[in-house]
Computed example of a mutant assay.
Amino acid sequence: MILSYEEQSPSIDSDAWVAQDATVCGDVTIGAGSRIMHGARLVAEAGGSIHIGRNCIVFENAVIRATSRHDCSIGDHCIVGPNSHVVGAQIDGEVFVATGAAVFHGAQIGRGSEVRINGTVHLRTRLEPGSTVPIGWVAVGDPAEMLSSDQHEAIWALQKTLDFPGFVYGVDRSSPDVMKTITSRLSDVLGIHRAESSC
């Protein structure tokens, strides 16, 4: 389904292909030779944009999102695996994001890197070109430190300074009713989807 969002419509190269049951919504550009497979969701919220380069493959049920605070860009010759999640990140060319991987707001992934199955690249994390996030591991920081998922305290020590609620939602983590503030704002912003129209 190809959808406009706040008068922004996708731009899809004539040599690209989007599965009928995929969703491409808002200011999304898809380059020649790219393939958006069944069930994939590419959604650029108001003020945000998504750029998919040439000959990229976005597999089944992957989610790629941009927000008003965080555009998303994927370079040429990349694979975004099934059930993976990329939001507000900048990914250089020839990167492999494997099945179930997650790449968060403000992350930068250098050319030729791999984020293996169920790997995580946390917000504001920078991977040098040619980096590998091992299966199930977490990359966090700038430059990235690689930590196994059982090292929660070490991950949190690095992650806490990256300030997820402040960086992503503009909300101070220590303020009262953090989740009420975040969800109320999101409800207002996402309510515009009620007015979506097919292209």
Rank of each mutant, 00 (worst) to 15 (best):
V103Y: 14
L127V: 08
I30A: 04
R116V: 11
I12M: 02
T23N: 04
E128L: 01
G48T: 08
G47R: 12
G47P: 13
R54Q: 15
G106K: 11
D21Q: 07
V87H: 08
V24N: 09
R54W: 11
M37S: 04
V28W: 09
N83V: 00
G112R: 00
G53I: 02
V97R: 08
S73H: 13
H38Y: 07
F96Y: 09
V115I: 15
G31E: 13
H85I: 02
I79G: 06
L123D: 01
R54K: 15
H77D: 13
I30C: 07
V103I: 15
N55Y: 15
V58I: 15
G119H: 04
I57T: 09
I64T: 03
G53K: 04
G39T: 14
D71R: 06
G100W: 14
G112K: 03
I52H: 11
D92V: 06
G81E: 06
A66D: 07
I50S: 07
T29E: 11
A62V: 06
P10Y: 01
M37N: 05
V103R: 06
I117A: 03
D27V: 01
S68D: 13
G75Q: 12
G75N: 09
H105N: 15
G39H: 14
T29V: 05
F104E: 12
V87S: 10
V86F: 01
H85D: 11
G130S: 00
T67R: 04
G93S: 15
A62W: 05
I30W: 05
D21Y: 00
H77M: 06
I30P: 02
A46M: 10
Q108A: 15
R54H: 15
P10L: 11
H77W: 15
Q90E: 03
S113E: 05
V63C: 14
T67Q: 03
V86I: 12
V115H: 06
S113D: 05
V121H: 03
E114R: 12
A32F: 03
H38V: 08
C72D: 08
Q90F: 12
S11T: 13
A62K: 11
H85V: 03
S73L: 03
R69W: 02
T29P: 01
H38F: 10
I79R: 05
P10T: 03
